[in-house]
Nucleic acid binder design. Structure first.
Lengths: 155, 155
DNA sequence: CTACTTGCAAATAATTTGCATGCGA
DNA sequence: TCGCATGCAAATTATTTGCAAGTAG
């Protein structure tokens, strides 16, 4: 189970298992496959069960979780970072430019052969990559279509 | 020429051609193919020739340039954005995790066929994508190798 | 002229840090 | 007990905004 794995990571690196960390972990575990969370969102969820926590504790622990590979840090160009539980499975995201909805996709376009070729050609050691698809989700497109229609009728 | 194109874009949208805008444009044109610039870096370069400018003017005009397609906005997960002249040619970047060096690469892994497949499967209209390769550049790897060596000898 | 722009200063937003106290192992 | 953690407050960094004065077209 995900929680046991995380606890083990804490122990291994000498990090203490505090109730704050457990609550933060719980928030991520309860959030599998849904929208990656911003620090603020994590904070609001944790505060429900642990009212005295400060947002600085969230930030500090997101770093720790990140270091331990428990979560991933994502950047959707919003001026803030988002975090998701590390499923251990390589994946990327669809991001709606209108409503911010994100969806994981298993698809990855980057092939081992290309990686090697670029490493050699550019003399650059590739450690990781990001690939995000931006566009409009079904719902936002439908809303937009409705809006256009009503404007056409009234205009 | 790049400058004429930009000026034309300004006129077309009713934006005025102020000396500040010309200086900012000049900085980008003089920076082709080198490191994408942060707002602060643009500011420091412009200030050399136009000392009274404020960094808020830089930000406001980066938005305008962006809207006109004169520059691209990039995000390398540094907690700030970077900007580069829009060459009109689709490309991605190598980013060194150590020194921050970036290099453009023409290679793009994302194929039209895959795009269509995902759009259909996910019912998502894809407008753009980001693909960045993170790792270590030649220089940083060499430095690291030297450091490891000297530590081994002294240790 | 006059609407778009700028510079200044102050406001926001996200994230980080110093420090005294608290608490898990 | 002892060192890692936390909460509080204040600092930092990136970016945005209000407003009066300036200027391109």
């Amino acid at each position: 189970m995900k929680e046991d794995y995380a606890i083990e990571q804490f122990r291994k690196k000498g990090y203490k298992i505090t109730p704050q960390r457990q609550e933060i972990l719980r928030v991520f575990i309860g959030n599998i496959d849904s929208h990656p969370l911003s620090a603020e969102e994590v904070y609001r969820k944790v505060v429900e069960r642990y009212p005295n926590i400060g947002i600085d504790t969230i930030y500090r622990n997101l770093s720790v979780f990140l270091e331990l590979g428990i979560i991933n840090k994502l950047n959707f160009r919003e001026g803030k970072s988002r975090y998701e539980l590390n499923s251990g499975k390589h994946h990327h995201h669809l991001v709606c430019l209108k409503c911010g909805l994100t969806e994981q996709i298993d698809y990855c376009p980057f092939k081992e052969l290309d990686l090697e070729k670029i490493q050699e050609e550019k003399n650059f050691e590739i450690k990781k990559h990001s690939f995000e698809l931006f566009g409009y989700c079904k719902l936002c497109r439908e809303k937009q279509a409705e809006k256009s229609l009503s404007e056409a009728l009234s205009g």
